[in-house]
Simulated scan of single mutants.
Amino acid sequence: MTDPAALDGFYSSPALDFTPRPGEILRRRTVATPRLDGGNRAWQLVYATRTAFSAPIPASGIVITPHTTEFARPSPILVYCTAFHGLGGHCAPSQLLAGERTEPETGFITTALERGWTVAVPDGHGLGMTGLGPHQFLAGRAAAHAVLDLARAVRALPELDSAQAPCTVWGYADGGRGAVWAAEQQPQYAPELDLRGVAAGAVVADPGALIAEIDGGRWAGLGLAGLIGLGRAYTHLPVGHILTDDGHRTIEQARELDAAALLVTYRNEPLGRWCERPDPWNDPLWRYVLANETSGRVAPQVPVHLYHGTEDALVPAAMGRGLFAEYRALGVDVSWREYATSHIGTATDGAAEAIARLASYLLHRPGTAARPAPPSPQTT
């Protein structure tokens, strides 16, 4: 079946025969968001960003303004990072939100629009744009660049008076991973952004530990997706040395699949089936890559709200608690909330507090209020 995105010239990769500024808008068009309540004007964007290793690369996303706002201009900007949608195919959030198919996280985006915030949703490196895939799933620094450069692009949109707009970031699961990486990278990568705070749920803080945990089980397709996504992000390293011939063929097939197809096709399949060893995450080169992808090594300079479900069968709650402890040790203004429910249940149950936290962060510029003592873990 032909990918509709491949037939849409808007998403074709532009030739970067110059070095654009990070966040520079390369292409934009007005779109409708028929399945999104609370949205007003919207634009699909192709903008310049950087790979994890600083090479220029185009990325796509969507920007949606609210129908009404209680704020004097400029309206705050929320960069909303969706959970993993897939490695390829017609599953990029910017395409779903402007198409006939439903974006699974429409409800969370609507809640933010109802607050009067402008919402920007990045597709991430390699997703949406044709010829640049597969999506660089689990590559934290790449995700951070896509997030921060989309915020830059929103501030530069000529239709909006947003050049001085404050920003927040929110995400869940892999989206939460992108959010905390954006918080960690912002002081160095995008210091001019007025980032006020971040909310992140079920953060994949340690991809190596997660891949080992889910290998051969119901979520095994995500482990394969991580191998593919990180392999794409680290193409300057010989990361494919662990693959068998069958592994190379499998990757070519999987790199175009969305999340649902990955989970069905590779359910209960161990990575060792396609690798030279049964535990590829322990290969020395891959141990280096995965160690480079752990969160909590750099202190965000803005408040961070973390939340997790105690019954999360995909991302262990201990991983979230560990990140909370790391941030607290680094002196980050960090809060923590546990919910006695599942991975999917926590995405819903934690949304109201996440939005409330972000709203409170918008009331203060970083550094203008004394940092409270870190709270003790709480369970609801």
Rank of each mutant, 00 (worst) to 15 (best):
L160W: 02
A98N: 09
I242P: 01
S12H: 15
A55M: 11
E213W: 01
L306K: 04
V304R: 02
G229I: 07
T82D: 13
E100V: 04
A15Q: 11
A259Y: 01
F137P: 04
A183W: 00
A317C: 05
R35N: 09
G99D: 05
T380D: 12
G39T: 04
T19N: 07
A200R: 00
Y234S: 05
T341M: 01
W219C: 03
N268E: 12
R21I: 12
N268I: 01
A299H: 03
T106E: 06
V334S: 00
T111L: 13
T110A: 09
P375A: 15
A313Y: 00
L314C: 00
D37W: 02
N40Q: 13
A359N: 15
R232M: 11
Q95A: 15
Y189N: 03
Q378T: 15
L16T: 10
A291P: 00
Q136S: 11
P375I: 13
Q186H: 13
T341W: 00
T168I: 15
D215R: 10
P4G: 06
V332C: 10
F18W: 04
L132V: 08
A205Y: 04
G131Q: 10
A190V: 09
D17M: 13
H67F: 06
L243C: 10
A212C: 04
L36W: 02
A179T: 12
R277K: 08
C167N: 05
R141P: 03
S162V: 02
R249M: 08
A325Y: 03
R357Y: 14
A32N: 12
G345N: 01
N292H: 11
P270L: 14
D279C: 09
V121H: 10
P58Q: 08
E213S: 09
G216N: 12
F71W: 08
F71D: 03
T348Q: 09
M1G: 08
R287M: 11
A354D: 03
S94L: 08
P366W: 06
T2K: 06
R321F: 10
T294H: 04
H85M: 14
G9L: 12
T244F: 00
S12C: 08
V315H: 01
L113W: 03
V63D: 09
P270W: 10
S13L: 11
L113H: 10
H67R: 15
H343I: 00
Q253I: 07
A205E: 08
P93R: 08
G201T: 02
E213C: 04
L87D: 02
L132P: 02
